[in-house]
Amino acid sequence: MEDTLLDLLHSEIINYTLQNGDEKDKKEEDLSGLEYIGFSTGYRIIERLTKEMPRFKDELDTMKFICTDFWLAVYKKQIDNLRTNHQGVYVLQDNAFRFLSRLSSGKQYLEAAPRYVAFTCGVIRGSLANLSIQCLVTAEVQSLPSCKFHIQVQRM
């Protein structure tokens, strides 16, 4: 029951945020607001979700947490593949990303896909920000519902 609620709420958030400014530029859709909503959400919820976890040893440990427990808690599944170059770049691959799984698979709605991943990019960025990892999170969709999240850690 609550799964559907989140999906619907998420879609509605997208509609609401994007309708406020889409007269201008059809080509360059500005998803900043949507991402920031995700950022704020991720930042706050991570406090609750890491409450029972032991202390993270290092950055990789934190990323693994995001891929397993965190993703499980929010998206009801784990990340299917985590790759890293050990230099601060991580790629998280979700082959059945929850918010894209309601759209038909393949390339039909590829153009609309970015809207559905912007929020999640923000959630990841916000969560990591609160765990003292400053990063840039972008996403790439090649074929729905599979999605790749790119995390680039900013070493200050």
């Binding site: 930042y43 706050r44 406090e47 609750r48 409450k51």
Partner: peptide, 19 residues
């Protein structure tokens, strides 16, 4: 401490509180 952490997590989830 665990209870304090719970309280704090609740506080952070409050949108009117800015971390």
């Amino acid at each position: 401490f665990r209870r304090m952490h719970s309280e704090y997590a609740d506080m952070v989830s409050n949108p009117f509180y800015i971390p």
